[in-house]
Design a binder for these strands. Structure first.
Lengths: 254, 254
DNA sequence: AACTGTGAAGATCTTCACAGCA
DNA sequence: TGCTGTGAAGATCTTCACAGTT
């Protein structure tokens, strides 16, 4: 399956469902916004609306973390921010390397959501010697030759692959050999990794194809169905699913 | 929920489960690769390995499309490519507009996976007047003022938002007003859209946070658990989940 | 009265395991 | 014999609905 390996019986480490883990960042984002507006407390209803989920789901999700709310009142914003951050492991520093500094790699390097969430771009790496030394987002690009050394020196455990598909597996192998155990893959390839290594993939092409599928259905329904059951608005999150038994491949631009 | 609207009772338009739809692009990619190597047929086992899923799941997925395989033999590659393409609506032309031509927008514009899958970048749009006329990926950037006109003139029904979070909702509203009914959102915001409009979101920050969660667990387990149940390799697809009742928010860089 | 926390029901998705066809 | 197609079991996720707490 997946990348050619076995998967854990259930990713639900310590009982938190994978689907819940995938939503914690959403709650965190909404809570952070409230925190910046100095809102002291929120009800599950309000927070759910801000995060784009329904309140029952949110309460159930939080129940896996513990009883952090107050009946009749709601949740303390600051406290929840802390609890969720801790749960996600964001209270510690996560040095990250980005490999492949094309437009996408540059976009990622410039992404502000990093630092604020405990992530730190330890290095930008590209195979093109001409890129070496060139600063992107204020960080000088380093050559692929330095990969292993950089990983070790910085204690990097998370790597981002933004290279063309052809180079992805090779880069992946080197990241893993160097000690990286979590990979975010933007290349349109199914990566093969050994046990113990997590891979998440993001693929623009796939997202568009899924949209096209539904778009096509809409066009069809117009002619058919009178009006009884019309398609309703839908918002899907490209992060949720990724099942606990991992079995889905990766993808995307470069 | 989601963007503040209701969702269809079940996105399973015409009976195809949402989870299956999310995997069709993966199969298509694997099949295309086989096709290019002139491989005539594949077994569910082989194709599943190439796509990174297990074979039972793949066979079940295909069973929703119809009986396209031959017992004792496998699936005809070309035939399957056609059937899946048709099912996804990729046999038709999908003009797409990309709004927000920063690094990410440029990366998307340059993404080759577009054209080969029926998608055509009809226009690149940016709010910065200085960008107007500047060619990106061979296509001249146009100013936001032209948005509605472009959508109408090209019959665009799919829009990609790659703007900063602050501009996303406004851009979204204009896209919808112009007639777009499917949106791929890269901005870290929960978009509010009327019924009938689909939104999918991709958020780098969220993906990293999910990785961090598991990474943290790994570190913990090392000290604990002897070796009985060690975490195994996992590959998650950031596209799968997006449930049929849509309820997940969006996110990402700009 | 307001709102959380959660058992239980329902829906969806995955995996098994084997009948059935080439 | 080999491999697909699928009913049925199992696992996970979502939603309901209300008891419990402030």
């Amino acid at each position: 399956m997946a990348t050619g390996r076995t998967h854990r019986p259930a990713t639900r480490s310590r009982g938190i469902p994978e689907a819940t883990v995938a939503r914690l960042p959403l709650y965190l984002r909404a809570l952070t916004a409230l925190s910046e507006r100095s809102v002291p407390t929120v009800s599950s209803e309000e927070l759910a609306a801000a995060a784009g989920v329904n309140s029952a789901k949110l309460r159930k999700d939080f129940s896996y973390l513990g009883s952090y709310g107050t009946r009749g009142v709601g949740y303390d914003v600051e406290y929840l921010v802390y609890q969720i951050s801790r749960e996600l492991g964001l209270t510690q520093d996560w040095p990250v390397v980005i490999v492949g500094i094309g437009n996408l790699g540059a976009a990622l390097a410039n992404y502000g959501g990093f630092a604020s969430r405990g992530f730190r771009v330890a290095a930008l790496i590209d195979a093109d010697p001409a890129m070496a030394g060139k600063p992107v987002a204020g960080i000088p690009v380093q050559h692929t030759d330095e990969l292993e050394k950089i990983i070790e020196d910085n204690g990097v455990s998370i790597g981002v692959i933004a290279t063309p598909a052809g180079a992805a597996q090779q880069v992946c192998d080197r990241l893993v050999a160097g000690g990286v155990t979590s990979i975010l893959n933007f290349a349109p390839t199914v990566l093969s990794v050994p046990d113990g290594v997590d891979v998440r993939k993001v693929d623009l092409s796939i997202e568009l194809q899924i949209l096209a599928f539904h778009e096509q259905r809409k066009a069809g329904e117009e002619t058919a169905a009178g009006d009884g059951a019309r398609p309703a608005a839908t918002t899907r999150d490209a992060s949720a699913d990724q099942g606990p038994d991992g079995d889905v491949p990766a993808v995307m631009p470069a």
